[in-house]
Design a protein around this nucleic acid. Sequence first.
DNA 1: TCACTGACCGTGG
DNA 2: ACCACGGCCAGTG
Length: 112
Amino acid sequence: MSKEIIIRNIDWIEKIYDIVRKIPKGKVTSYGAIAEAIGTKTTARMVGWAMNASHIAIPKVPAHRVVNRNGLLTGRHHFATPTLMQELLEAEKIEIIDNQIINFEKHFWKPQ
DNA sequence: TCACTGACCGTGG
DNA sequence: ACCACGGCCAGTG
């Protein structure tokens, strides 16, 4: 029985982290896109939940590059500071006004 | 142990 | 055009 692998629940979570880590600098994606990339088995809500636990993930995942469908920084309150998410995105040349990414479609990156 | 919630999204009325 | 609801999995009270 070497390794029957007790792991099974974190399987899709790891996939989410892996995808998020692949997001190129200066690009962003949405929860729904990630969920779709994994397969419809996991819904976007689970992606958000996984992100919440992303602070314990190693290496750390760039959760600031993940926004909702509207390009709105809905998860900003879960960062160290409410403005940290915007700061990080602006550092990557992404313009944000009122927690809304400008030209969101242009910066959107679809998970492969 | 049961029930609700969560960084969402799509559809229906 | 706006409001309400269901769905998926795990964690928490």
